[in-house]
Nucleic acid binder design. Structure first.
Lengths: 288, 288
DNA sequence: TATCGATTGGAATTATTATTTCATATTCCC
DNA sequence: GGGAATATGAAATAATAATTCCAATCGATA
C-alpha cells in the first residue's frame, strides 16, 4: 500500500492552497467518513493546526484512525505531516497582512528615498480601509441609503481635502443618472444653490477636522431649511454630526500630514451605488 | 513550591499581550537562562506556538527543563499551558490579508444588502493598493519626482473619473506651496490655459480607459509645446503613455462598474509629497 | 574560602499522542 | 443474493514529547 501511494500521488500538497484544491477536486470520490473530515478540515483549519489527532477526530465525529487515513489518501505519510501544512498556513498568514503593513510603516519611517513616502501612503490607505471595514455600522448605511434614495436631488457638499470625494460622488451619481448638485462654486453662489434645496431633497456632507467653516455654515443653513443630511466626518464632536440625520464616523490614517481618502471613498461609493440599486428596485416595484 | 506560585502569582497571564508585558517587566530580575528563553519567546512567538519543548529549547540554546521552569515562573503549570497562550494569539489574529479579501469578495458577491456593496468597494481598494505596492517601479518614481520638482508650474490634467485625484493633487500641492494649475475649466478655457505652459513647466496627467478624449487631446497639444508629462494610466497601449516622459501603469480593481481610486491616490500623494521634499532639500542646498 | 541557596544540565520517568492492527461493517459488482 | 473489495470502529502499540528529579555548578555572603 505504500507502493500505491508512491505511484499514485507522487506530488504531495505542500501548501495549503494546493491542498485545498486537491481536496475539493476529490471531494466526490471520497468515502463518507473521509469526506466528513475533509469538510471539517477546510471549515476549521485552525483546529487542524492546533488540535491533536484525537481531539480533531472527535470534533469531526470520526475515529482518529480515519483522520490518519485521510492524511494518507492525500499522500502524506501521517497526520503529523498533514498538520504541518495547516500550521505553515498560520505562520505565513501572520506574516502577511499585519507584518507587511508594519514593514511598510517601518520603511516609510526609515524614510530612505521616495519609495518610503509611497509606502507610507499605501500603509495609511490600507489601515484606513481596514478600520472602516471593522467599524462601519450597517444600520447607518441602510438608513443613509434609504434617505438618499428618496431624495429628488442629492446635494453634495465638501471642500478642500474632502472635495475630491465629493467630486467622485457627483461623477458616479451622474453615471447612475441620479440627479445631483455639487456645491463647490468658486464664484460664491453656494448660498443661492443651497436656497433651492427642499425637504424633498437630501445632502451628503463630508468634512474632517479642521472643519472647513464654509462647509459647516452651509450644512447648518441647509439643515435649517429642513433638508436631511447624511454626514461623513471624523468624530461625534464634529459640528457636522449635529446637523445630520445620519452620520458616519470615519477614521482616516494620515501620512506626511495628508490623510488618506481611501476609507471615505469606499463609503462614498457604497452610498452612491447603494442609492442607485435602491432606486432600481423601487422602480421595478412601482411598475409591477 | 506550588504554594509559592499560588500565593505570588495568583493571576496567570491568559492573553499574549498581558504575558508580553509581564515578561518585559520582569526581564531584569530573571536568571540568565530563563531570560534567554524569555527573549527568544518574544522574538519568535510562532516557534513557541508550534514547536515542541525540546525543539524550542534547542533553538533558544537551553535545556527543555529550563523552558518549563520559565513557564512555571510565569505562573503556568507547565510548558503546555504557556504554549496555549501563544497558540491563542495566532487564532485570534485577524485572518490573513488574502483570506479577508476573499471573504469580503464572497460577501460582496453573495450580494445581500448594502453592506455587500460596501465590502465590494473595500475589497477593490485593498486589491488595488496591494497590486500597486508590488508593481510600482521605484526608478520611475524617482524620475517623475525629479522632473516635477524642477517645474515652475505643475499643471494637473484629468477628467471624469480621474478628476478627483487631480483635485486632491492640486489641493496638496497648494498646501505645500507649490505652484500648480488644475486644468478643469468647464468654461472651455483649457486650450488657453495650456497655451501658457512652457518647457520649464511640467504636467501630471491621469487617464484610464476609456480615455477621456479631451484629456488625450490636451495632453497631445501640451506635449507638442515641449512640456514634459508625467502620466498615470492603465496600460502601455494608453495614448497617454506615448506623450509622457515618465508614465506609471496602475491597475485599479473595480466593483459594480466603478473602479477604485485608492492606488492612484496613493501614487499621486507620493508624487506630490515627494516633490515637496525634493524642493525643500534643493532649497536648503542652494542656501548653504 | 567555606557555605548556603539559587540555577542549570542531563538523564529518567511519566504522559500524551500518533499510528497500527484487526475485527466488523458496508458497499459494489457479478 | 453472495462474495470480494473497501471502509470503519475500537483497542493495542509505538512514538514522541512533557515533566520531574538529582547531581553539578555558580554566585553571593559571612
Amino acid at each position: 500500500m505504500s507502493l500505491d501511494r508512491a505511484t499514485m500521488d507522487e506530488r504531495v500538497p505542500r501548501d495549503f492552497e494546493t491542498l485545498r484544491t486537491t481536496i475539493l477536486e476529490r471531494r466526490e470520490s471520497l468515502p463518507k467518513r473521509i469526506a466528513q473530515i475533509a469538510a471539517h478540515a477546510l471549515d476549521n483549519p485552525d483546529d487542524i493546526a492546533f488540535g491533536t489527532a484525537a481531539s480533531i477526530a472527535a470534533s469531526a465525529g470520526v475515529q482518529p484512525s480515519t483522520l490518519i487515513r485521510f492524511a494518507q489518501q492525500l499522500g502524506f505519510d501521517g497526520f503529523t505531516s498533514l498538520q504541518q501544512v495547516f500550521r505553515e498556513r498560520l505562520r505565513e498568514r501572520n506574516s502577511s497582512y499585519d507584518e507587511r503593513l508594519q514593514a511598510l510603516r517601518v520603511k516609510a519611517e526609515g524614510g530612505a528615498g521616495h519609495r518610503a513616502i509611497f509606502d507610507g501612503f499605501v500603509a495609511a490607505a490600507s489601515t484606513s480601509l481596514n478600520d472602516i471595514s471593522r467599524t462601519l455600522d450597517e444600520a447607518h448605511l441602510e438608513d443613509a441609503i434609504s434617505l438618499l434614495a428618496k431624495a429628488e436631488t442629492i446635494y453634495v457638499l465638501a471642500k478642500r481635502r474632502s472635495y475630491p470625494v465629493a467630486s467622485y460622488i457627483a461623477y458616479a451619481l451622474g453615471k447612475l443618472k441620479i440627479r445631483n448638485q455639487l456645491i463647490e462654486s468658486a464664484a460664491g453662489l453656494n448660498a443661492e444653490m443651497i436656497g433651492f434645496a427642499t425637504p424633498a431633497d437630501a445632502v451628503i456632507a463630508i468634512s474632517f477636522s479642521p472643519y472647513a467653516p464654509a462647509t459647516i455654515e452651509e450644512a447648518r443653513s441647509i439643515s435649517e431649511q429642513g433638508v436631511p443630511i447624511v454626514a461623513i466626518t471624523d468624530s461625534s464632536f464634529s459640528p457636522l454630526a449635529q446637523f445630520a440625520k445620519v452620520w458616519f464616523e470615519v477614521a482616516e490614517a494620515d501620512f506626511a500630514g495628508f490623510r488618506s481618502l481611501s476609507a471615505t471613498m469606499a463609503l462614498a461609493m457604497a452610498l452612491t451605488v447603494g442609492v442607485g440599486e435602491k432606486r432600481r428596485d423601487t422602480g421595478r416595484k412601482r411598475k409591477a
